[in-house]
């Protein structure tokens, strides 16, 4: 266990100051910054939200709309590919595979770092959402400060659901990013799948496509799509499947650097 934890710490050090690390911060604050600017320029937009029965619910889903449909899936594709690319680009797989740790530790410590980065992004995004409501109120006296009685449990639950629908794409991207040295292949394939998922949203079997779950779940939550299929369960099933397939493919790679 200590070996695994040390491997995890090592992976965390490795990703520090990498582009994937910056991408988490950029991705998390992009929508809140845009919203802040919009609320400063067009105060009516935030005033409308304040008139809603549940302000936090309204601002939360407004912010998640762009995030879940476009930015998060694309961010996952980019960040996962960038993390695995750290080894390819620096010619480091061979160094990593000559360390006295099991291949399982290598595979899962990298994978856990990616999952933690996703959690980090969601947490930062929520902090950004809160600030996108406070900052306009600081600069414009007509905008009221939001109630600081945040619905923590509800926030945790909703964010948890967005986390769950994101992990099949993360594990699928991890699976194929480990297979290709050429950065463009996993990025291209990942982005094509995400766009394909968006195009397929009106298809009746879209619930079978794990790369469309972010947007599908968002529309289900807003009641714009029928909730007849439990996307959360499908997400967990695909997550387990992709993680195991990725692990087996990684384990049986003939060349390890």
């Amino acid at each position: 266990m200590t070996v695994f934890l040390n491997s995890l710490v090592s992976e965390w050090i490795k990703k520090s100051r990498s582009f994937a690390d910056w991408l988490v911060w950029l991705g998390a604050f992009f929508v809140p910054i845009v919203n802040t600017i919009i609320f400063l320029v067009y105060p009516n937009q935030i005033l409308k939200l304040h008139q809603e029965s549940d302000f936090w619910n309204a601002i939360f889903y407004r912010s998640w709309e762009t995030m879940s449909i476009m930015l998060l899936p694309m961010g996952i594709v980019l960040a996962v590919s960038l993390i695995t690319q750290i080894e390819f680009k620096n010619n480091c797989w061979k160094q990593l595979h000559t360390l006295p740790i099991s291949f399982s530790s290598i595979y899962f410590s990298k994978f856990i770092v990616l999952l933690v980065m996703l959690v980090q992004l969601i947490v930062l995004f929520n902090i950004g959402i809160i600030f996108s409501c406070i900052i306009p109120a600081v600069f414009n006296s007509n905008i009221p400060f939001p109630s600081l009685k945040l619905p923590w449990q509800w926030l945790l639950l909703e964010n948890g659901k967005f986390f769950i629908v994101s992990i099949p794409l993360l594990s699928l991207q991890y699976l194929h990013s480990l297979q290709f040295k050429n950065f463009l292949i996993p990025i291209g394939a990942g982005l094509a799948l995400v766009i394909g998922g968006l195009i397929a949203l009106s298809w009746k079997y879209v619930f079978l496509l794990p790369f469309s779950y972010n947007s599908l779940f968002f529309f289900q939550t807003l009641g714009k799509r029928s909730p007849e299929h439990n996307i959360l369960l499908w997400s967990l099933a695909y997550f387990v499947l992709f993680t195991l397939v990725g692990y087996i493919l990684y384990l049986f790679k003939k060349e390890k650097g």
Partner: peptide, 10 residues
């Protein structure tokens, strides 16, 4: 083995 394996951003 062969060229150095080092993380360039660190």
């Amino acid at each position: 083995i062969e060229s150095p394996s080092l993380y360039g951003h660190l």
